[in-house]
């Protein structure tokens, strides 16, 4: 959360308001904040299971490994969601963005994009946690997979803030929905194999 606030402060104060209107920079700033906030959060996703082999304790239990993945995904979504819930009001304050008409749409886009990259991040975090360089490995693995939902989400945010019509949004919304379906399904199916040593 501190990290998210820091990014917003830096981007806002680095901007020359006479050269660049807030609305032009706002979508990028918002999604940079969300993306890096999520990476920091996901880096800790399996850290609590690393100490004392608690992950083995989970894997020993008579629980489908797919259920363990989905449980971890929900927990990560909640955690990243809290970071976003704190960052969004700061974003409104710093960038003086009139959010009223776009709030519903922005929340939907945030939920869709976050679900996509947190789904991928959760499985990569599970892979990285058993390596010595987990905190370096996760961003390297995850960031390329974050590009499609981030491009779509930033594009949608810009259009929503500008009050563009629905016809300009649904293509990228479809991309986000498809990304979520594909990666939540793939990650759930692959998790048992990833957990096998």
């Amino acid at each position: 959360m501190v990290f998210a606030a820091l990014v917003l402060v830096i981007v806002n104060f680095a901007r020359d308001p006479t050269a660049l209107p807030a609305l032009a920079l706002a979508p990028s700033a918002l999604w940079i904040t969300f993306a890096f906030g999520a990476v920091v959060a996901l880096n800790r996703a399996f850290a609590v299971e690393r100490e004392h082999g608690a992950l083995d304790g989970l894997l020993l239990a008579p629980v489908p490994r797919e259920a363990l993945y989905l449980g971890k995904l929900l927990a990560n979504l909640a955690f990243v969601g809290i970071v976003e819930a704190v960052a969004l009001p700061l974003f409104v304050v710093f960038f003086d963005v009139p959010l009223g008409h776009a709030l519903g749409g922005l929340l939907a886009v945030t939920a869709l994009a976050t679900t996509g990259f947190v789904a991928v991040g959760t499985i990569f975090s599970a892979m990285a946690v058993r390596t010595r360089f987990a905190e370096l490995l996760l961003p390297v693995l995850l960031l390329p997979f974050m590009v499609p939902p981030l491009i779509a989400a930033a594009g949608l945010t810009a259009r929503l803030l500008e009050g563009r019509p629905w016809s300009e949004l649904h293509g990228m919304l479809r991309l986000l929905i498809l990304y979520d379906i594909v990666f939540v399904t793939l990650s759930t199916l692959l998790f048992p194999a990833v957990m096998d040593e």
């Binding site: 609590v48 299971e49 083995d56 239990a61």
Partner: peptide, 23 residues
């Protein structure tokens, strides 16, 4: 096997680690 989590139910393991959460 992965597809049969209940097969693991009768197993108890004492390993090098305690399998406990630190927090």
């Amino acid at each position: 096997a992965h597809g049969d989590p209940d097969a693991r139910r009768p197993i108890g393991l004492v390993s090098h680690q305690s399998l406990l959460y630190d927090d």
